[in-house]
């Protein structure tokens, strides 16, 4: 494969200057295990110690690759969230094609008297 991960020149931090993060400006060469833990908490994922180490290495590699976007000056470019120019689409809020609660709850992993049940939320 010739489409290789570009060797990235890392910018030197301007001394003492607090700045917003930009691509390619992560403070460490690789994502730290602590940072992996922070993201896993946000994503509601529990990870094994091995996972944490793996993610630190592999995600860093991918983020390094993504860093090549910083080569492009996009200061005057508008973002595109959708390829088509579709504006808000409105319709009447009518009930149709609906099923009873029981139908939806057929797939529930745990239920009781028409309610979804989950483990205890507050220690009592």
């Amino acid at each position: 494969m010739k489409w290789q991960v570009p060797l990235r020149k890392r910018k030197q931090d301007a001394a003492g200057e607090a700045k917003r993060p930009v691509i390619g400006d992560r403070s460490q060469m690789s994502l730290s295990v602590d940072e992996v833990r922070r993201v896993a908490t946000l994503a509601h994922l529990s990870l094994t110690d091995e996972d944490e180490k793996q993610f630190a290495v592999k995600l860093s590699g991918i983020l390094d690759y993504i860093d090549q976007l910083s080569e492009l000056d996009t200061s005057d470019v508008q973002p595109t969230s959708h390829s088509l120019e579709i504006n808000n689409v409105f319709r009447e809020d009518e009930t149709k094609n609906t099923f009873g609660k029981e139908t939806w709850q057929d797939n529930a992993p745990a239920k009781d008297h028409g309610h979804y049940t989950v483990p205890r939320v507050v220690e009592g």
């Binding site: 917003r20 993060p21 691509i23 996009t74 508008q78 973002p79």
Partner: peptide, 11 residues
């Protein structure tokens, strides 16, 4: 740094 930047490159 990531999502907005990528949306701009998308343009």
């Amino acid at each position: 740094a990531y999502y907005l930047k990528a949306q701009k490159v998308r343009t």
